[in-house]
Amino acid sequence: MSLAVAMKAVFAREITLFARRKSDWANPLMFFLIVCSLFPFAVGSESEKLKLIGIGAVFVGALLAAMLALPRLFDEDAKDGSLEHLLTSPEPLAALILARVAAISLAIALPLALATPVFSLFYALPTDVALMLALSVLLAVPTLILVGAIASALLVSARGGAILTAVLVLPLTIPTLIFGAGAALKVLFGESPAAEIALQTAYFLFALALCPVAAAAALRISTD
């Protein structure tokens, strides 16, 4: 079972790195906090108004914060040469990328999801809505990182990578944005969010099945 061993090794390495360099997951969190606090300045402080935009603002803030973690996927490895290890491994590249995405998702999505109910307080969102929003973020951020793996694998060696990654990734995260925010809205209006959660999970599973393979192909193209 050398495949499982290799995947575990990749996963463990990423987690160790995150434990050592706390800014890697703390910075997106800070960014998330600041974005969430900006909207009330623009919209005004009426709690009714804030409630309506709150779900969207928090959700988009979490997605943008997760974008910051994408360079962590391949860029730094490309610089220090450790990307070679991944590429020359006898194990299927897609599986190793999946292990790495899993580690990064854990280190990024979990803090963002935990912070979501707290930051929802800015917008006077009821507790059940805030918890639903946290679940949506927990599904949406890994989806974004999966899609982002394709883009950042392609752009490892390209000019202007960061902005281009956003241009490529964000349109493809629209379905998860629609379903995630929709689920929280349903809860806000006291309705069942089951359909939205199902669709959001479906999009995540879809990305989980296809993105690692596409990202592996992308990495072969760009490092070729």
């Binding site: 089951a194 359909a195 199902a198 669709l199 999970t201 479906a202 999009y203 599973l205 879809f206 099945a209």
Partner: peptide, 11 residues
């Protein structure tokens, strides 16, 4: 993929 399809059908 089949799990995803099942979820869509449910929704």
């Amino acid at each position: 993929l089949s799990a995803a399809t099942a979820l869509v059908l449910f929704a």
